[in-house]
Amino acid sequence: MSNVPADLRYTKDHEWVKVAADGTATIGITDHAQAALGDVTFVDLPKVGQSFGHGDVFGTVESVKAASDLYSPISCEVLAANGDLNNSPDLVNREPYGGAWMIKVKVKNAAELASLLDAAGYSAIL
């Protein structure tokens, strides 16, 4: 069974969002997503300062089998992108909720956070 940490929010597209008190959030893909992708070989992430609307494609994650778009769970501006994934894309398989965070963002519309799934809600769609 997939690991679904209780302290994160989720999308039905299998991204996780960790919301901080200071109006920022960290985004990655879930354990279920990495398992479904198989060996991740490349992660294409946006540059700092880029903005995305809710549901926009912010990057791509590639496995041996397929390339999959990453969808922005919320409207946001990119504050940081995880450079470790350039050299170690396999972190996505090993530490989907830790070392393989993808972007840190400034939350543009806090109201959108309410539309994210909680751990129970996400587990229910797996």
Binding site: T41, F42, D44, E62, V64, A66, A67, N86, P89
Partner: peptide
């Protein structure tokens, strides 16, 4: 062919 990149040409 091969590519000097990480992206896979599918």
């Amino acid at each position: 062919f091969s590519l000097e990149d990480r992206r896979i040409a599918r």
